[in-house]
Design a binder for these strands. Structure first.
Lengths: 202, 202
DNA sequence: AATACAACCGGGGTAAAGTCCGTTTAGAAG
DNA sequence: CTTCTAAACGGACTTTACCCCGGTTGTATT
């Protein structure tokens, strides 16, 4: 009993999903995230409002989807990247490299990331899970003699996640547009990790 | 030139502010944060909606105010507390103690904290500022030989702030109600700090 | 090709956040 | 006590996220 298919996404549904994402991106480029209202999005995409909600659940869901599209690229970069990132270097080096790239990614996608957690307050779980899993993996490999490496991984992941950057980039005077702040954070991350590893494997 | 007063808060305004906060707390105890709508709050407090918005700006503002009331107690505890917290111990010990207490505080106030960042996405700046400032102070005192202690402080503060806890407490199976997760985080924090300091002051 | 049904579509309806502005009042000054 | 004004008040109004459900369409099966 082959049971056919796991009931995949219907062709028309897929078409509409892509159409909506594309439209959302265009609207965002033109008028910022606030301009992407559900009504306007539906109309400009030539679809009903109900359809938009069916696909994305909430407004934040749209931005999450947008962010995830980018995250796929990011993920590939990390997994298949050259040695400081991908396999081929020590855990410390990889962790440093990963953090730097991750921070850069978030800085580049600040607006979307911010919109993605509006009205949800909880972080986009998928993203955090990815970060957490990666950090945990490297931490386990490193085999520092920590009591609870997984919780440590959680704490470290916090330093690489959206809310921190949102804070840094929102409070400060309008000058440093975020990219500079991102650089400082990346350097600090490197310091943090190196210090952590220098304290010895046991 | 005494210049009179800086035009303080009017008596009726103060009365109403307190009345609103008390009402909000009561409503939250009864029906959770979702039950605190602006209309309902205004009505139950016997005031107009405009008044509510004048005082708190946004819905999240109400929860921020609530959280801040608690935070005052917390702040006093930290500043005046017995030696592991207040002055009288080394920076490492103080940092560990502070983190543990801070995590506990947030776990105790998860619901309010979550509601306080709804629809704002940026953290309650006041809170983060406090945490950041405290960590930075202790870090400077410790005089590890870090290139940029302030950025490091930022990263560490991230491990003590709301979003992290929200994530930990929301994703996991419903069993560990958060207090257990908080304990693991607190232990991990201790590990992290101790390791960081063990890596030597230069 | 016909049938069945699950998934999708549309758009009017609801509730709640946030805005506006005319009215009222606290409290300082004369 | 009267006057004056900045601040506070109220509640109707607007906007927008989100829900509902009858009608339509894609897809698999025979």
């Amino acid at each position: 009993m082959p049971l056919g298919k796991p009931r995949g996404e219907r062709a028309d549904a897929k078409r509409n999903r892509l159409r909506l994402l594309a439209t959302a991106r265009r609207m965002m480029a033109e008028g910022g995230p606030e301009s992407v209202t559900m009504d306007a999005l539906a109309e400009r995409a030539g679809l009903g409002k109900g359809t938009v909600f069916r696909r994305f659940g909430t407004r934040a869901g749209i931005f999450r989807a947008l962010l995830e599209e980018e995250a796929v690229r990011f993920q590939e970069l990390v997994l298949a990247g050259p040695p400081p990132l991908g396999p081929g270097a020590g855990p410390a080096e990889r962790l440093v490299a990963y953090g730097r790239v991750r921070i850069g990614f978030l800085v580049d996608n600040l607006e979307v990331a911010r919109a993605a957690m509006e009205r949800d307050s909880r972080l986009p779980a998928v993203q955090v899970d990815m970060t957490f899993a990666h950090v945990r993996m490297l931490l386990r490999q490193a085999d520092l003699g920590v009591r609870d490496p997984d919780s440590l991984a959680m704490q470290l992941a916090a330093a690489l996640e959206g809310p921190l950057l949102l804070y840094v980039s929102s409070g400060r005077d309008a000058e440093a547009p975020g990219s500079e702040a991102g650089l400082r954070l990346a350097d600090a991350w490197q310091d943090l990790v190196e210090r952590l590893f220098r304290s010895g494997p046991k």
